[in-house]
Design a protein around this nucleic acid. Structure first.
Lengths: 143, 143
DNA sequence: ACTCCAATGAAATCGAATTTCAAAGTATCA
DNA sequence: TGATACTTTGAAATTCGATTTCATTGGAGT
């Protein structure tokens, strides 16, 4: 079983919560899905194979993923909350195309380091961060 | 008249829109207000001196500011949209305290430069960006 | 199997964002 | 300056995603 699945189950156990069929299904689907789906999009996807699972359950389960630390909530320009799998220790940021909505992930340790510096200068303890560059992707630049 | 006011009026003219008393009042109040007020907060503030101005007008005018380029919409953890004056060429990012909601602005040209590099590597043309560090401010670290 | 809670699904509710619509205001032009 | 043509405004209605409620169902330990 993958690390993330283990972590999530451990979280459930630790909180006195239960492993249910729905949570199993949703977790598997989540790990197999592209990142950054909105709750709605993700729900529609799940519904195809599991029509009996309700929106509320998907919604609550995604929240649980976030609370357990195996996922994070993200917010790009639109108002929908999107979820992203969070592998251990790996941070990444995003390039968001304002024309076609494509999302590209990138990592830059140097930027991370500078961020820490900034925080230090302000006596700030960073728990999380979010960096998005909005603009036109290579495909859309010409249009 | 300040640069921003000029820019906004020029924008109105260019779009065939009108300068109204409400827009004048709201613009002045906006330029004189602390950054990052939410629409609601800003509306309440304006209402004190101008009880006849409606929420919808404030809402629409803030949108106009954003469209005209003299302000930008921001979204920190909560769901409220916040507006920030955008002086020419000056970018800044944010430290957001998750405990007391304090917002500290900072600038870091080096981070900006690295962001441009990342974009270049991906053939991306950056139009805007958003960088927030969430965590505990100096005051809240001890609590 | 029994019991205690947690979990689920459908529907209701919430809150901010956004739109509608009739009335009023602004700018242009004769 | 007065008429004309739109744009703007305020209040209320609507939209839309997020979140909660509640009656019912389902895990898990005993």
């Amino acid at each position: 079983m993958g690390e993330l699945k283990k972590n999530f189950k451990a979280y459930l156990a630790a909180q006195g919560l239960k492993t249910t069929q729905q949570r199993e299904v949703i977790l598997d689907a989540f790990l197999a899905s592209p990142s950054h789906l909105s709750t709605e999009e993700f729900y529609l996807k799940i519904r195809k194979k599991h029509p009996s699972i309700g929106y509320a359950t998907v919604y609550r389960t995604l929240k649980l993923f976030s609370e357990s630390g195996i996922a994070v909530e993200r917010n790009f320009g639109d108002k929908q909350t999107r979820y992203e799998v969070l592998s251990d220790e790996e941070h990444h940021d995003h390039l968001v195309c304002t024309s076609c909505s494509k999302i590209i992930e990138f990592e830059d340790p140097e930027i991370e380091r500078l961020q820490e510096n900034v925080a230090l200068r302000h006596g700030f303890k960073v728990l999380n961060h979010s960096l998005e560059l909005y603009g036109l992707c290579a495909d859309c630049t010409g249009k």
